[in-house]
């Protein structure tokens, strides 16, 4: 069992919730870009979440969760002091940072929760980092102070113009590249469509772009192949070969189709939670 040490919402709209979990074995080795898999209880599914931070001394791992699916919604109903059944990791390969001097990290929505630790990790290693953090609107902005403290230049964009610069984060990225900013690499984390758009944009400018994939997973150790995707014509497993891949080589259409495979089951489960149990398990 793994204890929830603390829990806090990261924005006014409560669309992203931060959990600090007591997991010393995971905390010891966790590096930016890696993920964990958690399971709420005996009946739960295994859900992958990227590691946001790890405190080796305290033996804790921080995750930031958007309560949108059955499991994440149930997790969001839990409180500090509660326990979850399983919390395993660190899984996947850490984000590659060797040899990089200047990077633009671009995040979309809750993806910023994953982009932030990567940006911070790079900055801590002496890499110069610009960060573009895109959100839908002002009320869902997260981690502004933390991001500003961790990077050289932070640009916040909102789709509706209610905060920062108006427009998609890709617009800002193009503006920076047009203005002659040079990056060794663009690192991109966010919704699949957004990552695809970023890759289309950077391809024109010939800037290498790394994306952090978050497909359907089961075991997270290379055993099942549920998370496979096509990269440069080859089949890769996101859990062991990734989660970071060269975005210009990813077959985005199939990624988008695969991510929706269990949409019907998920919708049915949500309906079940809301109408029958009110979000709390009745059995067991």
């Amino acid at each position: 069992m793994f204890k929830i040490v603390s829990k806090r919402p990261l924005n006014e709209a409560n669309t992203v919730v931060e959990f600090v979990i007591e997991a010393p074995l995971v905390a010891r080795k966790a590096a930016p870009g890696q993920f964990i898999i958690f399971r709420l209880d005996e009946y739960g599914e295994r859900v992958p979440i990227t590691i946001a931070a790890a405190d080796r001394e305290a033996g804790t791992v921080t995750i930031m969760v958007q309560p949108v699916g059955q499991t994440t919604k149930m997790l969001a109903l839990m409180s500090a002091g509660d326990f979850i059944a399983d919390f395993v990791g660190p899984l996947g390969r850490p984000t590659h940072m060797e040899g990089l001097k200047r990077v633009c990290v671009i995040g979309g929505g809750v993806g910023n929760a994953i982009a932030f630790p990567v940006a911070k990790g790079m900055h801590d290693r002496g890499i110069e980092v610009d960060m573009i953090a895109g959100f839908r609107s002002r009320d869902v902005v997260i981690l502004e102070e933390e991001m500003r403290a961790a990077v050289s230049n932070l640009y916040i964009t909102t789709d509706d113009g209610s905060y920062g610069e108006a427009g998609f984060n890709t617009v800002k990225l193009k503006a920076l590249l047009d203005a002659g900013e040079k990056y060794d690499e663009v690192m991109c984390v966010g919704p699949t469509r957004m990552m695809q758009r970023v890759c289309e944009a950077t391809k024109e400018y010939g800037v290498k772009t790394i994306v952090s994939m978050n497909p359907i997973m089961l075991d997270g150790t290379g055993m099942c192949g549920a998370c496979r995707l096509t990269v440069g014509g080859e089949t890769k497993f996101a859990c062991v070969d990734g989660p970071d891949f060269d975005g210009h080589l990813v077959d985005w259409d199939s990624v988008i189709k695969r991510s929706k495979f269990y949409a019907d089951e998920q919708a049915a489960a949500m309906d079940h939670i809301c109408r029958i149990t009110g979000g709390v398990r009745q059995h067991g």
Partner: peptide
């Protein structure tokens, strides 16, 4: 993969309605 279907069914007990893991 057979591993995926078997893991969903056997380890995650997706064949039982009270378990959350989907299988189709």
């Amino acid at each position: 993969s057979a591993n995926e279907i078997l893991t969903r069914s056997n380890l995650m007990k997706a064949y039982l309605p009270e378990y959350d893991t989907p299988i189709r």
